[in-house]
Design a protein around this nucleic acid. Structure first.
Lengths: 230, 230
DNA sequence: TTATCTTTGCGTCAAATTAACGCAATTGAT
DNA sequence: ATCAATTGCGTTAATTTGACGCAAAGATAA
């Protein structure tokens, strides 16, 4: 029998972290899921996650899981919510501190052979293990709220992007359509975008202006109690 | 020596819940704190909290703590964030799932003699135990965000209130001043308030109109994708 | 008592913001 | 060659916002 050497006067739940990883392919919002190789929920897909180490914070744990699946050491990671339903894991009492991450899909290392990770579009997402469907709903709701007031959309886009790509992202996240011209005007008015010097050819009236998110400018504006709102 | 009979193959952190309890006295936002009777932080003030039972969810745990200190079985309670700094408790690894509650001060049972609980105004709040100052900052930030888009202010007011009281509450939470007439117009336009029949005397042009939050009306509006915004 | 504040409800108006849609230049496709 | 689609930039009317006026009536203080 296995040795159980960590003992407490009162029962302690097990604590895990799970990380909902969002990406964007230019059209659709994507989710990085891993296939479970063991029971419970063997064969089901789930968010990357695992037990919390005693010497790391929950965010460190979530980032560790993120790096294991994507190779990314840095990314936008934010705590989502802690899920504590008594029977959410059939084995024992397990609570999970859920996070969500926004990554640039192109920077994610291509799934090596051994990786069981795969990107799914939201509408083709398989049924998920544990209470991960609930976690996903909460994550999507949070993402929608958040993008109204924080420039987090850029975390999902390449460094350089076009206004149309940016609009596609907002539409994908918020599930609405915007008028192209009004979107352009509103986004420009925020003054957090800068045009990238058209390296080779001059803007030939058809190919779109390449933009870049100006983080310094946003930091300045934020200091001055400017409120981003979209 | 005490018996330690709950044993695991891997170490488990201890899990607590803490509940930031907000009230409103008509002028200032208030906090319900309890004085710690034992070390660590003996004599310091802290949010009501305690260890999570194995057969309850975190929210049930938070509500249990809330009822112990206020006698309230029902109140607005929402999960805030989970705090996991490795050394936040000097005794052992403890993570806490923090909640915040909004209560009507008048409904809170007067602190019986045994109670070590006391209401504090925000600006007179004592130094707090553990990482509770951090938790408080996060709770205040959340409250500010939340009240912009959800009708949670009414949870802090009596059933019947005046427009001036409502404005005082918004000003206390958001830390800004509003023009009385514009506040009135904007709030009225939301159509989530109903006038309470002036029971005895007709509105004698000086005493204010008593209002009540119309939850049914708000639910209807919400269904129709109406967006509350203040 | 009387003159002076304060509080409350409701109104006005100009400035700012938003939503809807026009237009021309250019390019890729049929 | 014609046509549809894309991109950048304007225009206009409706809506919303911010700042402030005003009168009635109770409270306050000389």
């Amino acid at each position: 029998m296995e040795e159980k050497k960590y003992c407490y006067k009162y029962p302690h739940p097990a604590v895990t972290t799970d990380c909902v990883i969002f990406g964007f392919d230019g059209i659709n919002l994507k989710l990085l899921l891993v296939e479970r190789g063991i029971d419970p929920y063997k064969g089901c897909w789930a968010f990357p996650g695992g037990f919390l180490n005693m010497d790391e914070t929950a965010e460190e744990g979530a980032r560790r899981e993120l790096e294991e699946e994507t190779g990314l050491k840095t990314a936008y990671v934010e705590q989502l919510q802690t899920f504590t339903a008594v029977d959410r894991d059939p084995r024992e009492r397990v609570i999970t501190i859920a996070f969500y991450a926004l990554v640039k899909i192109s920077e994610v290392k291509g799934g090596d052979d051994a990786s069981q990770a795969r990107w799914f579009s939201l509408d083709e997402s398989p049924s998920l293990a544990f209470d991960h469907e609930l976690i996903l709903r909460v994550a999507l709701a949070r993402l929608k709220e958040k993008i109204h007031f924080e420039p987090i959309g850029f975390e999902l886009l390449p460094e350089v992007f076009t206004m149309t790509e940016l609009q596609n992202l907002y539409e994908a996240i918020l599930g609405v359509k915007f008028d192209r011209r009004n979107f352009y005007r509103k986004m420009t008015a925020l003054e957090i975008l800068e045009q990238v010097e058209p390296e080779k050819q001059r803007t030939s009236k058809r190919d779109p202006i390449p933009y870049r998110f100006n983080a310094e400018r946003y930091a300045e504006l934020k200091k001055k109690h400017f409120i981003l709102e979209f």
